[in-house]
Computed example of a mutant assay.
Amino acid sequence: MVGVTIRSPSAEQRLRELGIALPPPPTPFGAYVEAVKIGNLVFLSGMLPVVGHVPQFIGRVGVELTVEEGCKAAEVACLSALSAARAFLGSLDKVTRVAKLGVYIATAGDFKEHPRVADGASEMLLKAFGEEKLSGRIVLGVASLPLGVPIELELVLEVET
Rank of each mutant, 00 (worst) to 15 (best):
V4G: 05
V4D: 12
I6C: 03
P9A: 14
S10Y: 02
A11V: 08
L15G: 10
L15A: 10
R16E: 14
R16I: 06
L22Y: 02
P24V: 08
P24I: 08
P26K: 04
A31I: 13
A31K: 15
E34H: 09
A35I: 06
V36M: 12
V36L: 15
I38D: 13
I38R: 15
I38Y: 10
G39W: 00
L41T: 07
V42E: 02
V42F: 01
V42K: 01
F43A: 05
L44C: 03
S45K: 12
G46W: 04
G46S: 12
L48Y: 13
V50P: 00
G52C: 10
G52T: 07
H53F: 13
H53N: 15
P55M: 09
P55N: 10
P55A: 08
P55F: 06
P55E: 07
Q56R: 15
Q56Y: 03
I58K: 14
G62T: 03
G62P: 06
V63P: 02
V67I: 14
V67C: 01
V67H: 01
E68K: 11
A73S: 03
A73P: 03
V76I: 11
A77D: 07
L79N: 00
A81I: 02
A81T: 03
S83Q: 07
S83N: 08
A84P: 10
A85E: 07
A85Y: 09
F88N: 07
F88E: 06
G90M: 09
S91Y: 07
D93I: 05
D93V: 07
D93E: 06
V95G: 09
V95P: 08
T96Y: 04
V98W: 05
V98G: 07
A99G: 02
K100H: 14
K100V: 00
L101C: 04
G102N: 01
A106I: 08
T107Y: 06
A108I: 00
E113I: 00
H114F: 14
V117T: 04
D119M: 12
D119R: 09
A121E: 03
A121W: 03
A121T: 05
E123R: 15
L126Q: 09
K127Q: 12
E131T: 04
E131A: 14
K133T: 04
L134D: 09
L134T: 06
L134G: 10
L134A: 09
I138L: 10
V139G: 05
G141F: 04
V142I: 13
V142H: 08
S144C: 05
L145K: 12
P146W: 11
L147P: 10
G148Q: 08
I151M: 08
E152M: 15
E152G: 01
E158V: 04
E160D: 13
